[in-house]
């Protein structure tokens, strides 16, 4: 075996080990703790003052019966819930077509002094259920909260 082909085999082993190590590190939560894509209403309330004045993302379900449209047709009020805590939201944007009660949303915005969350970027989070129009959605609020995957980092 030539020297060159032996050193290439060593490189193969080293590269695979490095790749495997990096992946294990990431899978074990190496960066997960510092990388939270959105806060749940409970986490936002817990952060309290710490969340004020900064642009954060809030994720949760649109609370049933909470959608209200302001007189000017632009200001939209609703509440976002994770089943435990609820945060009041004002949105100054036209929501996507799928916006409705009980759907997951991710909102980018700021928590105001009075505890309402103001957003200009309202995103609808669709879950992995794909159903025909005639199928009933028999899922409870609890099932819908599960689809938010809040247990993920």
């Amino acid at each position: 075996m030539s020297n060159e082909s032996r050193s290439r085999k060593v490189l193969a082993i080293v590269a695979v080990l490095i790749a495997g190590g990096a992946l294990t590190f990431l899978a074990m939560g190496g960066i997960g703790e510092n990388l939270v894509y959105y806060w749940s209403p409970s986490e936002l309330k817990e952060a309290g003052e710490g969340a004020r004045g900064a642009t954060v993302r809030l994720g949760g379900l649109v609370a049933p019966g909470s959608i209200e449209r302001g007189d000017d047709g632009l200001a939209l009020r609703f509440a976002v819930t994770d089943g435990t805590e609820t945060v009041a939201v004002t949105a100054s944007t036209v929501p996507p077509a799928m916006f409705r009660e009980g759907i997951g949303v991710v909102l980018e915005g700021e928590l105001a002094g009075d505890g309402t969350f103001h957003t200009e970027r309202l995103m609808v989070k669709h879950d992995n259920e794909y159903r025909a129009p005639e199928e009933e959605d028999g899922r409870s609020m609890e099932d819908l909260v599960k689809s938010l995957q809040l247990e993920n980092g």
Binding site: A12, A15, V16, I18, A19, A22, L23, L26, A27, G29, G32, L35, V36, Y37, Y38, G59, V106, M123, K125, H126, D127, N128, S147, L148, Q149, L150, N152, G153
Partner: peptide, 23 residues
């Protein structure tokens, strides 16, 4: 081989972390 590290991440990230994209 090093770039491949990202490939399992693409698949599993939605199960490990919160995301807008569904699982």
């Amino acid at each position: 081989i090093v770039a491949f590290v990202d490939v399992p991440l693409v698949y599993f990230c939605v199960r490990w972390w919160r995301s807008l994209h569904q699982i």
